[in-house]
Write a protein that binds this DNA or RNA. Sequence first.
DNA 1: AATTTATTGTTATAATATAACATTATGTAA
DNA 2: TTACATAATGTTATATTATAACAATAAATT
Lengths: 130, 130
Amino acid sequence: MQKQTLLTKNQQIIFDLIDKSPEPMKAYSILFNVQKKGIKAPLQVYRALDKLVEIGKIHKIESRNAFIACHNSSCQVAKATAFSICEICEKVTEISSAGLSKYLANFKDKDGMKYSKYNLEFFGLCKKCR
Amino acid sequence: MQKQTLLTKNQQIIFDLIDKSPEPMKAYSILFNVQKKGIKAPLQVYRALDKLVEIGKIHKIESRNAFIACHNSSCQVAKATAFSICEICEKVTEISSAGLSKYLANFKDKDGMKYSKYNLEFFGLCKKCR
DNA sequence: AATTTATTGTTATAATATAACATTATGTAA
DNA sequence: TTACATAATGTTATATTATAACAATAAATT
C-alpha cells in the first residue's frame, strides 16, 4: 500500500468540517456535527483526527484540546507548528514565519541538542479584543 | 488580604510531591499519592494545581496533561515557558535560555503583535534514548 | 487468489476536568 | 472585636476528553 494521499471517507468528512470552521473545533463538537453523515462514535472521530494530524492536514491546539486545519503547506512535513491564541475570544491563528521556524529549528539546548519537531503557542489579545 | 506568598496546606502537599518527582505527574497520579494525607477528591487536586500554575511554582506540560515543578526563577513572573520532551522515555526538561526567551518575547507576528506569554514544547530524543 | 495492511463499526470504559453548593479559615476595615 | 470580604477547603455529582478490545470490511501487494 502506497503512502496515503487521498483522504478516506471519514477523514474527508471531518477534515471538511474543520477546514470550514472559523475556529478550532473540539472532538465532541465534531462528533455532534457529523452524526448526520453516519459517524456515530467518538472513536471514529478520534481515529480520523489522529490520522489527519499525522499527515499534517490539521493541528491540535494542545492548550485547548481543539483542532484546526493547516494553512501552511510547510508543516505537512515539519510538524513544527506555532500559533497565536487570543485569551478573550479564543481566536487561533497559525503563524507562518520563516524567521521563527528557522530560529527554532536551529535552536540548541544546553546539551547541544536540536529539535525539528516543536509546538509553540503564544497567548495574548487579538486585534479586535485589544 | 495580601498577595499569597506561602502555600496553603493542600498546595504545599501537592507541590512537594511534584517537586520531588523526577518526571511530570498527572493529576490522578497526584491524587493517588496524596490520599494518605487527606486529600480525597480530584477537585482538591485540580484547585491546588490551578493555583500553583498561576503563581508559577509548577508548569503544565500541555501535550502530556502533566505537571512539573518550575526550576527557572524567571517564569514565576513571565509565564513564558519552554520544554524539551523525549518521545521515547517521556523525560521532560525545562529550558532556560536567555536567547530563546528574548527571541520569543520580541517576536512580532504579521500584525506586529508581540506576546509576553507563550508555551513552547520541543520533541525529540534525549541523550539516553538516542 | 492469498496475504497483508489500513480503515471502519461498535460497545464499553478509562482518564481528565469542572459545576454546584456548603463550610471553614484568614485578612481587612469599621 | 465584630462585622465584612475573600480565599481555601470539603463533598457529591457530573461533564469532557480519550482509548481498549474485538469483529468486520475494504484496499493494496505479492
